[in-house]
């Protein structure tokens, strides 16, 4: 398991049953996490991985699943280096 995957799972552990969440599962539509926590998750991602979100980053496709989040963070970190 990658560092990013592990860290995001750690964050989500407080909100849902992460053990039954596979890396491709839709975190929000599947209802694992209620959308009010989306804001907290975005804050977590920004501080944990030292990235800053632009308005164009606000696309559900970037945050839909653990795999999507990992891809997004990797690209973002590359851009901001």
């Amino acid at each position: 398991m990658s560092k990013i995957n592990e860290a995001v799972r750690g964050f989500l552990a407080g909100l849902c049953d992460v053990d039954s969440l596979s890396d491709d599962d839709d975190i929000f539509a599947g209802g694992f996490v209620n959308s009010l926590y989306l804001v907290q998750m975005l804050n977590f991602i920004q501080s944990e991985f030292s990235i800053e979100l632009d308005e164009d980053d606000y696309d559900m496709a970037n945050f839909r699943s653990l795999n999507a989040i990992e891809t997004f963070i990797n690209e973002k970190q590359k851009d901001q280096q």
Partner: peptide
């Protein structure tokens, strides 16, 4: 009310 700003952003609103 950060949730509402996020709601607008995900609905493709740009400043």
């Amino acid at each position: 009310n950060a949730m509402m700003l996020t709601t607008y952003r995900f609905a493709k609103f740009r400043t």
